[in-house]
């Protein structure tokens, strides 16, 4: 059994330094890995990234993250990624990593993802260059996620987790105004997850949404935005397939 701790949208800044550390310090008893689903900062400044690094640095479990839209706001995502890495956090973007827990190889594929909306009500790559660029970014994130999940399968992972900031399904947006769903996620992420297969999909971003959802092909989706889970992090127990 693998215990996955996850949280997104902690939106840390200098005024929230130290708030989450006591909870994270209990992780060695509660979980085998900590996944961070983006929006770790308010504006993605190096100062805020350093606060995040201090909160999760030196924990007894591997820490794997994706960035969120807030972490891009200052236009320095590479710097944020570098600062987090210097505290031992592995930041994924259209990439994957695998950790061995006892005998089980657990793979995590991650991307920030982007908006565009959900099947039947989504934006298309059509018209003005700005619109095309919007939808193209979403598609490229989803394509990268699919490739990363496929790679994890080829590497023989026993369990595979898709980690994004934007939502792959509308289920977990319940509570958010439907008018803004196209800014909260994209069906392209779910299509990638269903296409490549995964044991669990985690996302954040929708602070007013709900925790549980399902992709069309039955992959469990959990919105781990901190306001949604109502705790420092959530823990999910996954069971590797037998035989």
């Amino acid at each position: 059994m693998i215990r996955v701790a996850a949280v997104g949208d902690i939106h840390l800044g200098p005024d929230s330094r130290g708030l989450l550390r006591p909870a994270f310090a209990t992780l060695d008893e509660l979980a085998d890995v900590l996944l961070l689903a983006g929006d770790l900062t308010r504006h993605g400044t190096p100062e805020e990234a350093a606060v995040v690094g201090e909160e999760v640095g030196g924990l007894p479990v591997p820490v794997i993250a994706v960035l969120g839209n807030h972490d891009y706001d200052a236009g320095r995502p590479e710097e944020v990624t570098r600062i987090l890495a210097s505290h031992g956090v592995q930041v994924l973007e259209r990439s994957s990593t695998a950790v061995r827990v006892d005998g089980t190889l657990v793979g995590v594929a991650g991307t920030k993802g982007f908006g565009g909306g959900f099947a039947g009500r989504s934006a298309g790559e059509f018209g003005e260059p700005e619109m095309k660029a919007f939808v193209r970014h979403s598609r490229e994130c989803a394509d990268g996620l699919r490739t990363a999940l496929d790679r994890l399968a080829a590497e023989g992972c026993d369990l595979r987790i898709a980690l994004t900031h934007f939502a792959p399904v509308p289920d977990t947006l319940a509570g958010e105004p439907t008018e803004i769903h196209p800014f909260l996620g994209s069906y392209l992420l779910a299509e990638a997850i269903d296409g490549a297969g995964a044991d669990l999909a985690l996302h954040g971003h929708a602070h007013l949404g709900t925790e549980r959802g399902l992709t069309a092909c039955g992959v469990r989706v959990r919105n781990v935005a901190q306001p949604v889970i109502g705790r420092a992090f959530a823990v999910y127990r996954l069971h590797p397939p037998v035989g």
């Binding site: 006591p22 509660l30 889970i229 109502g230 420092a232 959530a234 127990r237």
Partner: peptide, 14 residues
């Protein structure tokens, strides 16, 4: 305010 306490339970995903 966000609740910064660790969870008291875990969800089992069989």
């Amino acid at each position: 305010l966000a609740d910064d306490r660790p969870p008291t339970w875990a969800e089992d995903l069989p």
